[in-house]
Design a protein around this nucleic acid. Sequence first.
DNA 1: TTGTAGGCGTTATCAA
DNA 2: TTGATAACGCCTACAA
Lengths: 351, 351
Amino acid sequence: MITIKDMADMLGTSTTTVSNVIHGKTSEVSQKTVERVEKLLEEYDYVPNNSARTLTQNCSKIIGVALKSRKEQYDNILADPFFSELIGAIEAEIRSRGYYMMIYTSNDLTELIRNILTWNVDGLLLLGILHDDFVRIKSRYKKPVVLIDSYAPRDIMNYVNVGLEDERGAFEMTSYLLEKGHRRIAFLADNMEGVDYTRYVGHQKAMAKYGLKADEKDLLIIRSGMMERESSLEELYYLSRNYTAFMCCSDYHAVVLMSYFSDRGVRIPEDLSFTGFDDVLLARIVRPALTTVRQNITQKGCLAVDTLLKMIQEEDQPKWDVKLPVEIVVRDSVKTISSYGSHEHIEMKTE
Amino acid sequence: MITIKDMADMLGTSTTTVSNVIHGKTSEVSQKTVERVEKLLEEYDYVPNNSARTLTQNCSKIIGVALKSRKEQYDNILADPFFSELIGAIEAEIRSRGYYMMIYTSNDLTELIRNILTWNVDGLLLLGILHDDFVRIKSRYKKPVVLIDSYAPRDIMNYVNVGLEDERGAFEMTSYLLEKGHRRIAFLADNMEGVDYTRYVGHQKAMAKYGLKADEKDLLIIRSGMMERESSLEELYYLSRNYTAFMCCSDYHAVVLMSYFSDRGVRIPEDLSFTGFDDVLLARIVRPALTTVRQNITQKGCLAVDTLLKMIQEEDQPKWDVKLPVEIVVRDSVKTISSYGSHEHIEMKTE
DNA sequence: TTGTAGGCGTTATCAA
DNA sequence: TTGATAACGCCTACAA
């Protein structure tokens, strides 16, 4: 690894001159010197030491990306295609903009904060973080932060969020199910805060539009590890008798349940309809293909990075809250129920 | 951000003393001073500046992780569940060992090398890299490197590789298909080098064992973007008439094709059998569930990180080549063919 | 047009 | 037991 000083010595010039050439401050250097320096630069393929640069400039060119899973615990959050697609998009965008990405999937907030500070990251992208955590981070970290899919009380703290029309997405999906004649709809969520809560609100509103009330007992919370535990799946299977449709807050859940249920003899969508959220690769591949709420994951990742870089470069004040559009994608996992009153599904199960 | 110097000033002591306390070199410091320093450390929640540390120690605690996709180009390599699961496992292991991960998915090798050098990463994890690229990296980067799933000529260069029993996996899968009565088997690969080539060798050997020869025309190479292009899928669909089984080098390909084919009226496995490789989540979720060659992706990631850290810490010389075991997982995507001669599938299609 | 010198935060050597 | 001091590689204000 050749350094600026090495080259300066070789050329019999000062480090300043070499540094100036490197940074294109060529107006202050004679043409001849420029050429000599550039020749060396090429010859030795000079690469700057970023630690040294960071130290003097107090800017690291690192973007920190922190994920907390929607579930309480995840053994491997990247196994969820929503997150892996999003991270993939973010990484590509960060790189193409000349920055570096450092990623943390830990749920340990203290460790996360230490990482951010120790590397002096220039900006932070926070996925699925809750309000309290955000406040704690903000109290220690003063550089730009962009949230993705966060719902914090706006009045308490200024923040920039790249989100989704979660409420509208759920509203339209539930409306669609209701149009198709479904009345006994289970709503599956990971928790009752942030994204999932907002989607539930949309669900409730659609129900209300039809003069129905979303009952709390129809709200099924998928706790950590449930999707991997046979007993939990079994329980959901028994509960499924009460419904004609499962409306899920993520494609992943929908698809896992569809598999399990169909192995148990449930015909989809004849016996039970399914809808998802996100329109992940999985949703397109599975059969019956999943009717779901599409979001453009790549766009979301790129927009978040773009917004963060704008803040870092102080180009302009970004919008504090963006809600990316959603779109219902009708595929084959929802049945049309002709007569509203008959709970065909239930009768079949309780034969 | 409080610095060591700040604290030294506040205490009226030298930076050396503070630094010593931080590093637990407490034998050289009086008990009283230790306590005073530790109090400040807590109070201001001191976090070291890693750029400064890297500069003096010439070790960054960063592990670089570079992926080149098995395909020529990928818009988002993390959309492939094999890679996202692997990266997830690697990230968790690196973090739990007190290191930091920097990831690059670029296919631009020059840029990759610059990144490695500019951050002075302590070690490098290379996924799916080919021999020439490895040589180029080695010529510039002198610290430890661990390869994952690489096949380089051993005689040319020393290297450490964490790999898989690729040949045996393919051998056993083909043997299984042969046992089940299949004779007209298409072999689907991304390319004919490294992993896929080795699997093809296994396939050939199994065929040979049955006195059959793997014909070149039965080797279907999935070029970049083919899985997303309707016309390519259509072409594969037409080709499928010639076979009773598709043996795929990745679950991802198998599953995408199964979807497409079944939409075109192909019954799986009645008309066409499928096998995959990797045993990714997808393989378990899809119906019919995919018969595949399982590898333990998490174990692979952890072992690679562990090996690399051993090399960095010079604990001992790791084995230069590890081949993790594989296991055939029989599920529902392969049909048993009773009479070998009858090409039921073909006759149905050409009715 | 070029060079000098100080500083970024940390660590390590060596002297007190 | 503690403290100067130099060094890591780079940048920049200022001087020549």
